[in-house]
Simulated scan of single mutants.
Amino acid sequence: MQRLKTRSQFQAVLAGGTVGRTPHFALHRASLEAPVVMQKSSAPAATPVAALFVVHDLWMGAMVPKRWAKRAVTRNAIKRQIYSVSADFDAALPVAAHVVRLRASFDRKEFTSATSDVLKAAVRHELQQLFAGVTARSPATARQDGAT
């Protein structure tokens, strides 16, 4: 599994569409046939610099905005859970680029600590529901081992 790193990769995946939702998370997916990044130069025609996704593999990214998780420790804990759960569903997900986006905050009255075990368990449970729902709907597109 590869991780998304650049802003243009995240933007391409978010433009691809939403494939699953839970109360707090949304899963976005884009095929790896994304457009090529174009570099603006003084030359009359723009030339392709590099493809967004150079490796034909499963790509994963996590977006946890400050708007929904104020403390950095909480954002980091949620991102770790996203990458951990996505690794569990690695074989069932299709070869594509994915982004898990936090779209609502967890209630601070229920989860008083920024990184409690209760919060981690709730995040993990909801992410497992998200990935299980997406993989159950698209078994025909799940990647095959040894496929290119």
Rank of each mutant, 00 (worst) to 15 (best):
F89G: 01
A96H: 00
L102N: 00
K120E: 07
A92K: 12
K120P: 02
T112F: 10
A96K: 03
P94C: 06
F106R: 03
L127A: 07
V100Y: 01
L93R: 03
E110Y: 07
H98G: 04
H98P: 04
A121R: 08
T115M: 10
A104S: 15
S105I: 06
E110W: 06
D117S: 14
L93A: 01
P94I: 01
T112M: 12
V99A: 03
A97N: 09
V123W: 00
E110G: 06
A96M: 02
L102Q: 03
K109F: 10
A104E: 15
T115R: 13
D107Q: 10
V99N: 01
R101Y: 11
E110D: 11
A104R: 15
R108P: 07
S105N: 10
A97M: 04
F106M: 05
T115C: 12
A104V: 09
F89T: 03
F106L: 06
A122W: 00
A91N: 10
L93E: 01
R101V: 09
L127H: 04
K109M: 10
H125L: 10
R124K: 13
V100I: 12
R103K: 15
R124C: 08
H98N: 07
S116G: 12
R108F: 03
R101P: 04
D117C: 09
D88V: 14
A121H: 06
A104P: 08
D107I: 07
D117F: 03
A96T: 09
V99Q: 02
S116A: 06
D88W: 08
F89R: 06
S116F: 04
A114G: 12
L93P: 07
V95R: 14
A91H: 13
A104H: 15
S105H: 10
K120S: 09
R103F: 05
V118T: 13
A96Q: 01
V99L: 05
K109L: 11
S105G: 14
S116W: 03
E126D: 09
H98D: 08
F111I: 04
R103M: 14
F106Q: 05
R124M: 05
L93G: 01
E126M: 08
A122Y: 02
D88T: 15
T112D: 07
